[in-house]
Every structure is written in C-alpha cells, then in structure tokens.
Design a protein around this nucleic acid. Sequence first.
DNA 1: TTACTATTGGAACGGTTGTTCCAAAATAGA
DNA 2: TCTATTTTGGAACAACCGTTCCAATAGTAA
Lengths: 191, 191
Amino acid sequence: MRPVTFDKQKALANVTHLFWQQGYEGTSVQQILDCTGLSRSSLYATFGDKRALFIQSLAQFGQMSQAACMPLKNRGNPREAVRQFFELVFFVMPEQQRRLGCLLVNTVLEQSGLDDELARFASEQLQTVEQAFEQCFEHAVAEGRLEPDKDPRLLAAFFMTLTRGMRVAAREGQSEAMLRSMVATALNILD
Amino acid sequence: MRPVTFDKQKALANVTHLFWQQGYEGTSVQQILDCTGLSRSSLYATFGDKRALFIQSLAQFGQMSQAACMPLKNRGNPREAVRQFFELVFFVMPEQQRRLGCLLVNTVLEQSGLDDELARFASEQLQTVEQAFEQCFEHAVAEGRLEPDKDPRLLAAFFMTLTRGMRVAAREGQSEAMLRSMVATALNILD
DNA sequence: TTACTATTGGAACGGTTGTTCCAAAATAGA
DNA sequence: TCTATTTTGGAACAACCGTTCCAATAGTAA
C-alpha cells in the first residue's frame, strides 16, 4: 500500500483558515487545492465533497470555540471568568486573525435561507458556548458570587450576543482598545 | 419613444429583499429576473451589472436604517430614545422580516476579504447609525440627562455592537422576548 | 524483482455563472 | 398612418463552478 504523503490535520487547518477568510460560497475548490497542495482526487478521497469538507471545518472551529470557554468553567468570580473568556476569544490572537471574525457567526449569516442545515450546525456550536456562560452564572448565583436576582439564562444570552456583535465589529476593523472598552462596559451588568 | 412598463423603485425593493435573504453571492441574476419580472436587457439597462445593482440595494437599505435613527435625534431621555430605536429596528416589523437580520451586517461579513469595497460601503452605512447614537449621548450629557462621566463615543460603540449582535441572533431565530430582555439589560448601562 | 494496491495528477463532464448582443416589438410624436 | 426611438425577449457567449473518472504513478509486501 502506498502511504498518504500529506498531513490531513494540517490540510484541514489550512482549509478552515480559508473558509474563515472568504466564507463557504466565496471559496472555490481550486483555491482549496492551491492552499493545501492536494490534488482533486486526494481532496475528494479524504474529505468528501466541498460541503462535507466545510462541515469538518465548522466542527474544528467549534472545538476551538469550546476551548475558549475554559475560564467559564473555573469556579470563582464570574466577572473575572467572563473577562478571561473575552481575553481568549479576542485578544490573545494577533490583530490579523481577530479581523477575520468568527467562522460560525459568518456562516450563520451567509447560509441562513440558503443551506439551513449548515446555518443550524454553526448556530448549535455557538449555543454550546452560550450554555457555558449560563452554567457559569448558575454556579455563581448558587455560590453567592452573583446576586440572586440575576437571571443566568438572560445574562448568558446577553454576553453571547455581545460576543456576536464584537465578532462583526472586529471584522469591520474595530480597534482593540475600543473592543476592550466595550467588554469593560458590559461587565458592569454583573454588578 | 416607448415608455418603461415597470416601477423601478418597486423592482429595486424586491431585489433588496432578495439580497437581504440570500446575500450577494447567494443570489443569481436569474433569481433577480424571476422576482422582478424584468428581462435581462431591462435589468442591465436600468441598474447596470449585478454589483452596481447590489450597491443600490445597500444604499436603499442604508436609508431605511437612517430612518430608524429618528428617535435618537429627539431631545429627551436618552434611555427612552435608545429604547425606541430598538423598537423600530427589531420589533415594529413582523417576525419573518426580523429573522432576515440586517443586510448591511450580512454584507460586511460576506464580503470582507472578497470585495472590500462592498464591505466598506456597508460598514460606512452602519457607522452613520453609530454617529446618531453618539450625538444623542453627547447632547444628553450636555443637557444633564446623562452623567458626565459617561463617554458618548464608547456608549455609541457599545449599543451599535449590541445591535450587530442582535441582528445575528435574530437571524439565528432568537425569540422576540429574549431580544427585548437583552435590550432592557443593556439599558442599565445608561444609569 | 515482481505483483499488488492505494494514491495521485489531470483530463473531461454537465451545469451554472454573469454578461453581451441583436433582432423584434411597441409606443410616442408627426 | 408612418417614422423614429426605446424597450424588450431571448439566443449566444466565455468563464468558472463542483464533481467524476481513469490511467499513470509510487510505495509496500512477497
């Protein structure tokens, strides 16, 4: 048997980055071949067609998003947990990468009404992050770190929506300083 | 001379609605012909090519967005002005329309990195709305309706980013009740 | 070295894209 | 009614889309 000569994971990462920049419809199979160095046959053999490949990219990106939820799972000051979440999602990466926004958000907007299955898949990944927020706040209320009149579900939706908005703003080129200020402003909601 | 038999404004409105649903790349010229009833020749004669037509759609949508800023221009309680803005942008229309999100936001995400000129044009329309927010808060501070330690520019960016996020959430199918709650939560920032 | 098998490169496919062009149709003015 | 002018319908275009297929290649095991 002849062995595969390319790194599947690395190829997928490159493709994900391409989809992240240009979206699903904006990326052609030819560009995918160029950026991975794969041949058409190899691409279809290892990943299936373009749509299947895109789903794998969404899944990979979703896992990265999950990783950014880690601070929300540490018990402690919820305000600090949320701050660290935004730090991970927006400010750890270089500006060039922050300007791409979020592949999941981009996909929801691009594919709603066109391929609702893709849009729903992306949306589900985002909801997982929202659940991490919600659990963080639930624990905080239970442990007295958050006033009991705060609604964990509403707060989670609020911060998730702010995240979505900041992803859009980042793609519009909003400055890091302004993004940081908005986080600081929003954190007052928790007091 | 032979007169034109169709209503140009109505045709543009139909096209705008189509772009709003499906995006720029997701909409084919054939679909545009079907939804307007125009022939290829008439379309190209009156609107130019697809890209030029899309720009006209963006401009039309931008004007609608400006109209929603009216409450921000009335002197009075800024909190009430902001509340009315969200009322106009999200809750006056039927759910079916709210679920489309915002053509400008959709375009920013779709076209950044592909056709930066289109993305910038859409982004500029959004910034005009942000300026309306900023002037509203500036006046409010000057007239003592808002505490002087509030930064109008930051508050404007914050509410604009919340709007962007809510537009995404609306396209994801977020309920009206939840969207209303998020507005109520955000308004606390002004206290 | 030989035979086998999975991988690979590239040609070829039908379909759709946006755009152009031209002849036919239709109306206003004379 | 006749002419002039513009709109209109539809054919035709080249370019690109995603996908399939097949023969050549290359590495492995015997």
